[in-house]
């Protein structure tokens, strides 16, 4: 396979970007009246149809950035635009797969998936049918009648994925979606995600702490520095040809070159995070 950027890799440059964060910074108000400067002004752009992965040490502000893009939180400074329109209030064209469990515990898996269509005006029958089909796609046919507490952590994540995908959002925000899954399931889910994404290329902002996963999936990898005042310290286009085989791609020489380059960028930041934490522990 050629490593050169094929036409399939390059995003459509003519269109307006799906997500454009300009000079966005975030400071959290602390309970004691102070402020925690989580993210320094950063620029993040995700083109329509582009798959962007965000890597960074724990606590650097990855979820924070996704919350801004989702419109759940206003930035302390800077602006966001979604397909050229200023982001005010919720981002209605985005689907957000949360890092934490976010299913409604009082609804069955099927109802959890169907509800997004129902509130948008689908008939219940149509919504349930679509939900059942989507659950089947994520490998949960036959689990529709279970309540979240009757599912494993990985199964819950897959229900959440179905819940987001069934609405066909134009932008996908995913926060460590495969975090609690075992290595094999991660691989299968990554494949599934790429399949679904390949079918109707959405813009994706994908947060992960797994370097291999980021390279295997993304068109572009952003690396964030350790907080506080986290910045984007590296941007790596991933010129691996598509469609990709998530497992095979890991044995390509280009993959290893990228891995080494990105890890070189990330390593020091990860160390910094732990050094900082150890220092605080002593104080």
């Amino acid at each position: 396979m050629s490593a050169g950027g094929s036409a399939a890799v390059a995003p459509r440059q003519d269109a307006v970007p799906a997500v454009a964060l300009r000079g966005v910074s975030v400071a959290y108000a602390l309970a004691d009246g102070g402020r925690y400067e989580a993210v320094q002004p950063v620029d993040v752009t995700v083109e329509d149809g582009e798959f962007v992965a965000i890597l960074g040490p724990t606590g650097c502000g990855k979820s924070t950035l996704l919350n801004i893009a989702a419109g759940l939180m206003a930035p302390s400074s800077g602006t966001g635009t979604i397909f050229g329109r200023p982001l005010a209030g919720l981002n209605a064209v985005a689907g957000y797969l949360f890092q934490q469990d976010a299913l409604m515990p009082w609804k069955t898996a099927r109802d959890n998936v169907a509800i997004g269509l129902e509130v948008a005006g689908s008939t219940r029958a149509a919504a349930l049918e679509a939900a059942a089909a989507m659950l089947k796609r994520v490998g949960l046919a036959g689990f529709g009648e279970r309540y979240p507490h009757q599912l494993s952590g990985g199964q819950r994540k897959r229900v959440a994925l179905a819940q987001v995908l069934v609405r066909r959002p134009k932008i996908l925000l995913m926060d460590e979606p495969f975090g609690p899954l075992d290595a094999q399931t991660r691989l299968i889910m990554s494949e599934l995600l790429l399949d679904l994404w390949q079918a109707d290329r959405k813009a994706v902002m994908f947060v992960t702490h797994d370097l291999d996963e980021a390279i295997a999936l993304a068109d572009r990898v952003l690396v964030m520095s350790a907080g506080p005042r986290a910045r984007i310290i590296g941007e790596f286009p991933i010129p691996l040809a598509r469609p990709r085989d998530v497992a095979e791609v890991r044995s390509e020489p280009e993959f290893h070159r990228l891995h080494a380059a990105i890890w070189g960028c990330l390593r020091d930041e990860v160390r910094k995070t732990y050094a900082l934490a150890a220092g605080e522990g002593r104080a």
Binding site: A94, Y96, F98
Partner: peptide
């Protein structure tokens, strides 16, 4: 749960 609430909002609930 604030997360469940945020999720419900993102799913388009008024």
């Amino acid at each position: 749960s604030p997360v469940v609430l945020s999720n419900a909002r993102m799913l388009g609930m008024n």
